[in-house]
Amino acid sequence: HGYHVTIAHDLESATKRLLDRQPDIVVLDRLVGGEDAIARIEGWRAESRAPILVLTSLTGVHERIRGLDSGADDYLAKPADPGEIDARIRALLRRGAGQQSGDMLRNGPLGIDRLRREARVRDRLLPLHPREYRLLEELALRQGDVVARSTLLKSVWDLNFEPRTKLLEVHVSRLRTKLRDAGAASLIDTVRGTGYRLNDWPRDA
């Protein structure tokens, strides 16, 4: 398929290659040399914007959520069909190309840089974890409209069902706290029984 592939057999080598070569995408086996690679992803996110596809035999919902919350972009159970792996890679590369269009989402002093995957209020960087950023981005793309819970779960966590945990509520609460600390106490509304809405930045904030 025209890919130039670099292989690493342990996480130390993978980290070095990631920093040295800045690949377009990372395909990662969750267990590398007996070590859980999930623990490394958050650190990698500080150094690289390459999308990360995790392959794993740990397929429980909680494991999948943990992997995505760590900063992985996709999570695929093994054994996986090579055609599906290739399709997931193409989808992640397309998503990355879209993010590299330089699009900025703005709401008053709140700016969301889709290239860098970061949000700032005035010149202050919001300390968002990867899923918090994705949640804010999804709400900002539909600013003023109610975004259904099912849409957010699918877009941010790739879940097609309601988890038994309060996954979405917890992340919305954390995001609200960080926005409040930046000066916007009422930016995200809960629409009971439906979803959430990102409001316009308050004029007096």
Score class of each variant (00 low, 15 high):
138 E>T: 10
122 R>H: 09
26 V>S: 06
21 R>D: 14
157 W>F: 15
198 L>V: 05
190 T>H: 07
132 E>K: 06
71 G>W: 05
30 R>W: 10
6 T>I: 15
20 D>L: 15
28 L>A: 01
75 Y>G: 01
204 D>M: 04
30 R>Y: 05
184 A>F: 03
148 A>F: 07
120 R>E: 00
140 A>H: 05
96 G>E: 15
104 M>W: 14
184 A>S: 15
102 G>W: 06
21 R>H: 12
166 K>T: 13
169 E>T: 12
202 P>M: 09
37 A>R: 07
66 R>D: 14
125 L>W: 01
93 L>N: 04
15 T>M: 00
78 K>E: 14
6 T>P: 00
10 D>C: 12
27 V>D: 03
87 A>V: 09
47 E>F: 13
16 K>L: 12
155 S>R: 15
182 A>L: 02
70 S>V: 01
187 L>S: 11
98 G>R: 15
85 I>H: 05
77 A>N: 07
57 S>L: 05
195 G>A: 09
177 T>K: 14
188 I>E: 05
56 T>G: 10
111 G>H: 06
15 T>Q: 09
104 M>T: 09
53 L>R: 05
16 K>F: 06
92 L>D: 08
11 L>T: 07
193 G>L: 01
136 L>V: 11
191 V>W: 10
149 R>C: 07
107 N>W: 10
143 Q>I: 07
194 T>K: 14
95 R>H: 11
38 I>P: 00
106 R>P: 03
51 P>A: 09
69 D>N: 15
65 I>V: 15
84 E>Y: 10
26 V>A: 06
176 R>V: 08
102 G>N: 10
48 S>I: 05
84 E>D: 13
179 L>M: 11
24 D>F: 08
101 S>A: 13
68 L>A: 04
181 D>R: 12
125 L>D: 11
168 L>R: 02
93 L>I: 11
199 N>T: 06
62 H>K: 08
204 D>T: 13
178 K>L: 13
166 K>C: 02
30 R>I: 05
34 G>T: 09
1 H>E: 08
73 D>P: 02
60 G>F: 13
76 L>P: 01
71 G>P: 03
140 A>E: 02
204 D>E: 14
161 F>P: 03
42 E>C: 01
5 V>K: 01
99 Q>S: 07
169 E>M: 01
75 Y>I: 10
6 T>S: 14
198 L>S: 06
133 Y>N: 03
96 G>V: 01
200 D>Q: 12
95 R>Y: 09
147 V>S: 12
95 R>P: 04
50 A>V: 05
89 I>K: 08
197 R>E: 10
132 E>Y: 05
26 V>K: 04
54 V>D: 07
33 G>I: 04
68 L>Q: 06
174 R>A: 11
103 D>G: 00
169 E>F: 04
118 E>L: 12
40 R>T: 08
73 D>E: 12
178 K>I: 08
121 V>D: 00
138 E>Y: 04
75 Y>S: 02
9 H>N: 13
194 T>M: 05
117 R>S: 11
52 I>F: 00
156 V>L: 12
169 E>I: 06
170 V>M: 06
188 I>N: 05
189 D>I: 11
188 I>Q: 08
180 R>L: 09
98 G>N: 12
117 R>C: 09
